[in-house]
Write a protein that binds this DNA or RNA. Structure first.
Length: 192
DNA sequence: CCCTGATTCGC
DNA sequence: GCGAATCAGG
């Protein structure tokens, strides 16, 4: 695979969205996260607007030799209705963001309005005790993304237990997340 | 150990 | 230009 214009576009977008290099690599396919990172650097968009930056290192920090106190004529420039209708002549037919449906996993259904077997619920309680209590940033492809608690409070985290291949949740949560929807559809006429 | 991005350097 | 190997950090 090579860095076609299109692929670079996707890379730019995803990187801007804060996706990790590995995720982008998977999405693009045919490249490793190293390749992605390498490309990102070559494109000059290494550091994003701050995010999950683990290594917040200002390495090689430019000493900023700017002893010249420039008057900085940076007044509140009146944005005149932003007369900038995109300096794009007619060479970027990509106005409507492509339907790149990244962000994979479906949102976890709330187990409230759903009738789950007491067994499963009890099991969940157990599982939640073992939850790794990961925050959003710590989730990966193979950690259970089942939310626990109220997102509006501090009492919120993700299960984080190792999840089955392909599934976004651990075994227990997968069980309640993907129910065959036939829990109590009992047909009383068993032997007929 | 899992992950993250950063950098280097041979190709 | 590319990206694997390596590095450095959480």
């Amino acid at each position: 695979m090579s860095w076609t214009d299109e692929r670079v576009e996707i890379l730019k977008q995803m990187w801007a969205e804060g996706k990790s290099a590995s995720v982008i690599a998977k999405e693009l396919g045919g490249v490793t996260r190293n390749a992605v990172i390498g490309k990102v650097h070559r494109l000059g968009l290494s550091n994003r607007t701050a995010a999950a930056s683990s290594t917040a290192k200002p390495a090689a920090e430019a000493p900023k030799p700017e002893p010249s106190p420039q008057p900085e004529p940076k007044k509140a420039e009146p944005v005149q209705a932003a007369p900038k209708p995109e300096p794009k002549p007619a060479n970027s037919p990509v106005p409507p963001r492509k339907p790149i449906i990244t962000a994979g996993q479906p949102l976890p259904p709330q187990p409230s309005a759903n009738e789950i077997s007491a067994e499963a619920l009890a099991n969940l309680a157990e599982v939640e005790k073992k939850a790794r209590k990961l925050n959003l940033m710590q989730l990966t492809e193979r950690t259970c993304k089942w939310p626990i608690g109220d997102p509006a409070t501090e009492e919120f985290w993700f299960c984080g237990l190792p999840c089955q291949a392909g599934k976004p949740y651990c075994e227990a949560h997968t069980a309640v997340a993907f129910q065959p929807m036939s829990s109590r559809r009992d047909r009383r006429s068993a032997s007929r």
